[in-house]
Structures are given as structure tokens and as C-alpha cells.
Design a protein around this nucleic acid. Structure first.
Length: 435
RNA sequence: CGGGGUGUAGCUCAGCCUGGUAGAGCGCCAGCUUUGGGAGCUGGAUGCCGGAGGUUCGAAUCCUCUCGCCCCGACCA
């Protein structure tokens, strides 16, 4: 069954809000509630309504495609895990109250996974025995739970969140480094496809252990952490083929690691100061888990080798908020086309007027048949309400048909990003939207 | 986990100090008018005033306990 790509607003479950719910502080949270994308179900836990769910799936799909393109293979691990494997790695006690612990009916200790290193290591060690099967990068996109003391900012800092996590397995450090670089590249491509400028920052490896690690921060005025980076980054990142070597030499750090006296720090006129939202984190951690959990393969000489591992996370649900932080104005969201829930919002200004109805129905059918996702506002409502809702939900294109224009054979096409409007024939509008 | 705030209609909030028949705007329903940027008029529905206990003739209002949510900090993808 092919997915329904278009929708009539009169039937679509999209409860928009004119006023801002008092619980929301930042733009993305406010707009997601107002646009009818999410509703909070408990602190830091959200229901994704149809509009939000569509965006989440678009983002997820881009992440998936870039992981696949980088040679990673998708699988799906469960949300609930046994405490046993976490005892093997030693993290069951080390992980604090952020871990949601559960007891089943047989009094077995379980937990809702905050991450999956243990589980993937178990799967790997039970099924891979030879270096010949390496390298491998396995990933899944699954809901995680971390019982944050203080959830906030809507889906940007929820307790339940959707995350893509990949795990690489290599026979030696050189291999692990290649895997790391493959993921590094995939991340740059992934965020770029979503219209985001994501800067890899030198990150503190902290408790995870390892010496290769980067955080990817999306630039947004409302970002939670301050970031400092070399202006040269922007020119390099704008190119299609990213020069990793050059890029990795540039200065880019979060505020807690910023050191103006460091010899690496560029002079003031080349140092950019901005705010960022962390949307990805990659790190190499060597044999930390393979040693603790006995993930061993036979090497070329027949002797057992502990595999070299790395893990690579992307906050998929957080990205929805991050993109809105980067793309909105005081009227609402301005989706980049790649992640927009629909490409076109078709506005019938006078439902019931036979000429308007006919033009809109024709456009709706034609675009849908050509694979263009359309949200058709066929509600019997006032123009102001329709324009306000369209601006709020932020579809990239608004195609407006009203009695005056239709009589002259014209419709209006508005670009949500630029605000630019053009009057043109139906044919010309369709041509532009299907190009 | 420390500090602060808040809970009254679907949403935003008033009422609480000083106890006495539960309110406004928006939204929703019906009708009329209106029709290119969140319309106007008329009529209507909607609340265990977060929960439990207490004081009182009488509690949204005072007291005690409790739960939820939000903000600041510490923590985090």
C-alpha cells in the first residue's frame, strides 16, 4: 500500500493553538505545540501527532539513508534490556538514577535502555568469530529513556527520545579510525541534507573513555551551549566534498573547552562565537566493552583479539526541535523542504465557490499524482485563519486560490522562507512545484 | 537533587489577601451577517477551582499533607 502523501485539512488531525501554552519557553517547543505536532503526556514524554510524526519520519529516513550509504547496516534492538549485561560491563551500578529500572513479574531486574553498547556487544560476540567478518557497522533507530532530573525545552531535552545509534567493530585501531571517519563524513552529509550547519567540535570523552570524539553542534541563536570556531569552517563546509583532513585541523570547541590562550585558537577576527545545539556525538572507545564482555574474534594469526569499537549517536527527535530553532520567524515554522511534513499548502480561499473548488481540486489531484505532498486547506473558514495556520505549520510553499485570481486564471504562490509571492497561471505554478 | 513558582472551562488568565450562588477573552455548538491576513451580532454548552484531610453554619479562597507541571542552578543525546 502506498503511503498517503497528501491530505485534506478538513480531515487531518492537526489541533493548532492560537495562544501559547504556558509550559513552553523556547521557540521550537512553543511552535511544536501550537502547530499541533506534539502534546506532552508526562514531563519530558510526548505524543507525536500526525504532523509531528511526519517530520520525525522524514528526519529518520535521511539519517537512515546516509547510514546505509556509509556502509552501516540497520537492525533493531529492544527498548527493554536485562540488567545482566549491564553488570558485565560494570555500568549497572555506575549509571545513576538516570537509568529507568524495572522489575518484571519474576522479580528479574530489567531496564529501559538509555543506550545500547552492552546489547550490541552481546549480539556481536555471540555471532562473530573471525576477523574476516570485519569491519562491521551496525545501527538502529530506537526510543531511549533517560530519567533526566529536569526535562525541558520540549523534545530537545525530553526523557524519552528517538535516537540513531551506530556501533563499529574493527580488528585494529587503523580500522576503527576508518570507521570513525566514515561516520564523521556521514554525519556532515546527514545534517547538511536537513539544511543545518552542524559543526564537529572537539568533545571531552569523559566517562566514556577513548581519544577520538566529536560532538556535532547545530548553529542556532537559541542553542544551549556557546561555541567557538574558526571562520574557515563555513567555507569548507559549504563545499560538496568535505576535506576531512583540513576540517579536522580547524579550531572548534564548546565554551567549556574554549581557551583563548591556546596556540590553536584563531585570532579574534577569525574566531566566530555562536550558540549551538548538540545533535550528534561520535566516539571511539577501543576495547572498553569488548574486554569487559568478552567480544573476541580470531585474528589473522589465529590468536584471539578484542575488537576495537566506536559508537555514534544522532538525536533524531531532538533534531526536530533543533531544525525549528534554526528555521522559524514570529509567525511560525519555516521547514527546509527535505524535512517538511508536506511540500505544498494549498489554500482555497472560498470553499463552496465552484470555480475555486474546481481549481483547487484539480491542483490537489495533479500534484498528488505527481508525488508532490500537498496539504489542502478545504476548510470553510476565513482567509486570515488559513493564512495564519499555514504560516504557523511552515510548509515551504503556499499555493493560494481565491475568487478574484481564479476569475483571471491566476493563483498565488508564496515562498515561506523568503516571503516572496508571485501571481501566475495554474499551469506555471504546477510546473514550478513539480520541477 | 537544591532553590523558586504554579495548578480555576479546550487555550490564556482574573477571582484567593479580606470565606457567602464560579468569571472574562479566545476556542466550541446554533443562527444571521461577513468573506484575500486569526471578523461582527444574537443565543447556547462546557468546570468534582489538581487530590486528600482539617477549621467553619458555609471553603476556589484559611490550615496541614500530597501529587502534577514550570522556571533557575547542578546534570545530560
Amino acid at each position: 500500500m502506498s503511503p498517503r502523501i497528501s491530505m485534506r485539512l478538513s480531515r487531518f488531525f492537526m489541533p493548532t493553538l492560537k495562544e501559547t501554552p504556558s509550559e513552553a519557553q523556547i521557540a521550537s517547543h512553543r511552535l511544536m505545540l501550537r502547530a499541533g505536532m506534539i502534546r506532552q503526556s508526562a514531563s519530558g514524554i510526548y505524543t507525536w501527532l500526525p504532523l509531528g510524526w511526519k517530520v520525525l519520519q522524514k528526519i529518520e529516513q535521511i539519517v537512515r539513508e546516509e547510514q546505509d550509504a556509509a556502509g552501516a547496516q540497520e537492525l533493531l534492538m529492544p527498548t527493554i534490556q536485562s540488567a545482566d549485561i549491564w553488570r558485565e560491563s560494570g555500568r549497572y551500578d555506575a549509571y545513576g538514577k538516570e537509568m529507568l529500572r524495572i522489575v518484571d513479574r519474576h522479580d528479574r531486574e530489567m531496564l529501559y535502555g538509555p543506550t545500547n553498547e552492552e546489547l550490541i556487544t552481546q549480539v556481536f560476540r555471540d555471532n562473530v568469530k573471525s576477523y574476516r567478518e570485519l569491519p562491521k557497522i551496525l545501527y538502529h533507530i530506537q526510543w531511549k529513556f533517560r530519567d533526566e532530573v529536569r526535562p525541558r525545552f520540549g523534545v530537545m531535552r525530553g526523557r524519552e527520545f528517538l535516537m540513531k545509534d551506530s556501533y563499529s567493530f574493527d580488528i585494529d585501531f587503523e580500522g576503527a579510525k576508518r570507521s570513525y571517519e566514515a561516520m564523521f563524513n556521514a554525519y556532515l552529509r546527514t545534517f547538511k541534507r536537513m539544511g543545518l550547519t552542524a559543526i564537529p567540535m572537539v568533545a571531552d570523552s569523559g566517562a566514556i573513555g577513548g581519544n577520538l570524539t566529536h560532538e556535532f553542534h547545530v548553529l542556532a541563536e537559541t542553542g544551549e551551549s556557546g561555541v567557538f570556531y574558526d571562520v574557515a569552517y563555513e567555507e569548507l563546509a559549504a563545499k560538496d566534498a568535505v576535506d576531512l583532513e583540513a576540517l579536522s585541523k580547524l579550531y572548534a570547541v564548546t565554551d567549556e573547552k574554549h581557551d583563548p590562550n591556546s596556540p590553536d585558537c584563531p585570532p579574534a577576527d577569525r574566531l566566530k562565537v555562536a550558540r549551538g545545539i548538540e545533535v550528534g556525538h561520535i566516539f571511539y572507545f577501543g576495547t572498553k566493552y569488548s574486554k569487559a564482555m568478552g567480544a573476541v574474534v580470531a585474528g589473522p594469526d589465529g590468536n584471539p583479539v578484542h575488537v576495537e569499537m566506536g559508537s555514534y549517536g544522532i538525536g533524531v527527535s531532538r533534531l526536530v526541535g533543533a531544525i525549528i530553532e534554526a528555521y522559524h520567524d514570529d509567525r511560525g515554522i519555516k521547514w527546509p523542504e527535505a524535512v517538511a511534513p508536506f511540500k505544498v499548502g494549498l489554500v482555497n480561499l472560498k470553499v463552496g465557490d465552484s470555480a475555486c473548488d474546481k481549481v483547487c481540486e484539480d491542483i490537489y489531484r495533479t500534484l498528488s499524482e505527481q508525488g508532490v505532498e500537498v496539504l489542502y486547506d478545504d476548510r470553510d473558514d476565513r482567509a486570515g485563519v488559513k493564512f495564519a495556520d499555514m504560516d504557523l505549520i511552515g510548509l515551504p510553499w503556499q499555493l493560494v486560490a481565491g475568487p478574484k485570481g481564479v476569475a483571471a486564471g491566476l493563483v498565488e504562490l508564496k515562498n515561506r522562507h523568503t516571503g516572496e509571492k508571485q501571481e501566475l497561471s495554474v499551469e506555471a505554478a504546477l510546473a514550478q512545484l513539480t520541477a
